[in-house]
Design a protein around this nucleic acid. Structure first.
Lengths: 250, 250
DNA sequence: GACTATTTTTGACGGATCGTCATTATAAGA
DNA sequence: TCTTATAATGACGATCCGTCAAAAATAGTC
């Protein structure tokens, strides 16, 4: 039935099937619901074949994370290409990060836990490298906007801050805000009825102001409505669909 | 051998024994190394007895998180009582958060993952409540310092910011910085040779300045050396011991 | 087409872990 | 001493993981 020599297109297609089914399984039953046996029952391949593609459950999870990073990377690149000033663009990236986390909360949490030793150690070298590469891509987008801002004069680096430091400060701030407000972490004491979207934007504004990133704005950033009805219109609609009918795959 | 009717002191003592051994097991073999069977082999109680105390492995993990939050709570309270101005005190809390994460990195990561559905759902109601309570305690310390700062005049709330919003912004910022620089997440692209201590302090300074929290400082906050040689002397030493000889329990 | 060699797929198996529960052990009271 | 309530035990069934020897499928050769 199957060809003797498998071309990489066929292999990729299979991997996609496996990742899709794994994702769906997680969407239905949570991360702990993902089981190799259950997965095998849903796909036209056997357990052994799955293990030809993934070194184990953890490798599969990292595979899903890589897909999530790809999704995020697309959003970032679109945000970075937003036709506005540098402050609007960096804000758009933060906004994109938040959108991603809301559209795909499970993947967002997965990425956090993917680097813990219990998962990372069991990830194949091949996929570890692929993951790192995607992560680098993301950082590059961030850095590009920062460098642009500097060259245009919108931003001048504070003493003892490198471009990377600025990128990291913004990233950590967005990440912390999103992570603590993530729906998975319901009923956190820290988050008392705080809405994610305004919080992320407020925190971005605070930090950008602190860097003296021009043009200085009061929060909320005025450009947000444009992002929601323009650049990220599709994602916003996708998000609203999610809120009405839950449980559908990415 | 055992008394017929167990008083709560005896029960608490047992729970401590179990938690200690679980902690040690994790320190030796990582979170995935914690196994009920292995735990049972190390303590003078049987599996059934363990299950009389904890509803399962996840409940045990949450139990460890509660202990971690208690540790953190002590640090926070000491920081909040630091005899300095309000800005120094809030900075001391952020510093304490970082110290805690460095002294007990596994617990820090555990607390992140504890709220994910796969763990939280399997946690007993009793322990869920205990956890929430500890979390509330932490937030209260934060809020107290913020309210003090306002009443003293060091801080005036920005428009559309409540006290909780300020607390959350600071918390999220510290959390994000620490989490991304956590040693468990080695080789993150975002963190290129960035040291945790200066990063946390820089980010705190940025945010405090953005709030106009008086007295305005350049980073690094000048009070840090005092914290390291005074208030948190013991913890700093503990940390240095950890760096030289790894693997010893909290 | 028959036969061989090579590649690929398969799922049964051993090992490990979980959580339960019938059984055993212990202590208090009569 | 004997009964009874309480607590501790660990054997057991169920589940899941990852492996590997056997089976299936294909390509090549005559």
């Amino acid at each position: 039935m199957s060809p003797k020599i498998l071309d990489s297109a066929e292999l990729d297609a299979r991997e996609q099937v496996m990742l899709r089914s794994a994702f769906q399984l997680i969407a239905e039953e949570g991360v702990s619901g993902l089981t190799i046996d259950k997965l095998v029952n849903r796909i036209p391949y056997s357990k052994g074949t799955v293990y030809n593609h993934f070194s184990g459950k953890e490798d599969l999870l990292t595979g899903l994370c890589i897909e999530a990073l790809e999704h995020l990377s697309h959003l970032f690149q679109r945000a970075a290409a937003y036709p506005g000033n540098s402050r609007e663009r960096i804000t758009a990236i933060g906004f994109a990060y938040m959108l991603h986390a809301q559209i795909n909360p499970v993947a967002f949490m997965l990425v956090i836990t993917a680097k813990t030793p219990s998962i990372w150690e069991k990830t194949s070298d091949k996929r570890q490298q692929a993951y790192q590469q995607k992560e680098d891509q993301l950082l590059q987008v961030f850095l590009q906007v920062i460098c642009d801002a500097i060259s245009v004069g919108d931003l001048s680096l504070p003493a003892s801050f490198s471009e990377s430091d600025v990128a990291f400060a913004l990233w950590a701030n967005c990440f912390g805000t999103i992570a603590l407000l993530q729906e998975d972490l319901e009923r956190c004491a820290v988050r008392q009825n705080i809405e994610m979207e305004p919080a992320v934007l407020r925190h971005c504004s605070l930090l950008l102001n602190s860097f003296g990133w021009l043009p200085l704005h009061q929060n909320p950033e005025p450009t947000i409505e444009q992002l929601k009805t323009g650049l990220f219109k599709a994602e916003i609609e996708q998000l609203e669909q999610r809120l009405t009918a839950k449980g559908q795959p990415l």
